[in-house]
Design a protein around this nucleic acid. Structure first.
Length: 125
RNA sequence: GCGGAGGGCUGGAUGGCUGCGUCCGUGUUUUGCACCUAAGAUGCGGGGGUGUGGCUUUCAUCGCUUUUUGAAAAAGCGACUGUCGCCACCCGCCCAUGUUUUGCUUGCAAAACACGGGCGAGGAAAGUCCGGACUCCACAGAACGACGGUGCCGGGUAACGCCCGGGCGGAGCAAUCCGACGGAAAGCGCCACAGAGAUCAGACCGCCUCCCUCGGGAGGUAAGGGUGAAACGGUGCGGUAAGAGCGCACCGCGGGACGGGCAACCGGACCGGCAUGGCAAGCCCCACCGGGAGCAAUGCCAAAUAGGAACCGCGCGGAGGUUCGCCUCCGGGGAUGUUUUGGCCCCAGCAGGUUCGGGUUGGCAGCUAGAGGUCGCCUGGCAACAGGCGUCCGAGAGGAAUGGUCAUCCAGAGGGGGCGACCCCUUGGACAGAAUCCGGCUUACAGGCCCUCCGCGCAC
């Protein structure tokens, strides 16, 4: 596994780092913009109007469950974002992924991926 | 074997693909700083050079005039060319030095990225209920008061409301478990309903005596009935009109010499016929403990802006001294209630000058090695625990990492096949996520493993 395919791995690694939203005001701004509701998650997105790299935020409120459940939901959302956004996300946008009670944790992972893809197509249309 | 009691441990495993946080190393890039060195720009000083301008002067040159003239020559005036000197400005120059820009060398630091390596959730990380460490409110102490807490006794501990041992009361055949377990003759208050009567109490029924127009009335009586959580303590005998601690015996209760124990408490000669129940989780009394706020504490740095503080200056509660820095005494004021001791700080004002910082945002520190834990042995102790030696372990984030996904296996559950060992299929792993750090308590928890003890049954 050490040196087989260095050429295919390098570009992926460079693009896999997603910038994370940290300020409350960014979350509030995204919440006022477009949104798309899917069965596994809720997506909010805002076009900032510049050409800086896209940014992602995650929200799992206490409605999701206790701390363990909230963490797991957030981790699955992070993983979904890592798989989908480098290809389908647009630069200059902020995306906020919001977990849903029970579903975000229990839904099959492939379905969750489809949910995000569908939501992105809806918002970019 | 069945049933039970107490305690401890564990909290799925392996692998593939792919991620995250932190620390270390290597490399690349960028930035900053320092150094080496080169070039450029520029400042100052010295030297040098010459260009321009001005002035002066000498000489040369030219022109004109005059004189002598054949020419030449001389004198004067002018031109401004060259030259000498001085002054000003200037410089593709040299030397020394400073500033600065760019490049380069090396080193250091930071950031980003890549690669490699180490480490990376719990027994409860939880609830935030107690006790501390630490920080700030300058600090330390005493008495009283208020408020809050603790509450059998002794020990352990940094401390505790925790732990250990003991006592007392209760539950259980037992192992063992449970207990807000100080004081009710210090005082106040409350004790519903029922009942005739509820603590300086009481006669409804009954019993006994007397009276009487046989219905009843007067008196005695707490043995019996009834009420109630509780009714002048219980049983027996004597006694009596019937009864009653009225008398006696035993039990209970109260007091109690004395003995045992560090103590809680235990035993108890003897005395008292026995007047005095519960609630302190109502107030209260007694003993002991406790200042408040908290890591969003607190400290530092950098930005950008309304405007505060300190020092200097004028001036400065009183007196004295003075080396003019300040010191001593007295007076007033300052902090969480009052008083008090030590100690500290401050003693009108502002028209000025200098310096510094508060709120906000961002960053750094605090930040993890500590009353540290694991395991083993030794010493003291019934034990909690303490001491010693060895051993191994040590997350440190900050919209918050410690994961996502897939496969196989292993527990467990259900179904089917088989006499059985076993095989096949399905299902399937609890409670729960560090946030400054420790000691406890409480609460949640699928399943599994181990140890000790008790009762019953069987065998011997």
């Amino acid at each position: 596994m050490t040196g087989d395919v260095p050429d295919t791995r390098a570009p992926r690694a460079a693009s896999s780092r997603l910038e994370v939203l940290r300020k409350r005001s960014d979350f509030l701004a995204a919440a006022r913009a477009k949104r798309s509701s899917q069965s596994g998650l809720l997506l909010q997105a805002r076009n900032r109007g510049d050409q800086d790299p896209l940014r992602v935020g995650y929200t799992c409120s206490k409605k999701i469950g206790n701390a363990v459940t909230r963490n797991r939901a957030k981790r699955r959302l992070r993983e979904v974002a890592r798989a989908v956004l480098p290809d389908m996300g647009h630069d200059g946008w902020d995306y906020v992924l919001i977990g849903r009670p029970r579903v975000t944790v229990e839904r099959p992972f492939s379905d969750l991926l489809d949910d995000l893809r569908r939501a992105l197509r809806q918002i970019h249309k």
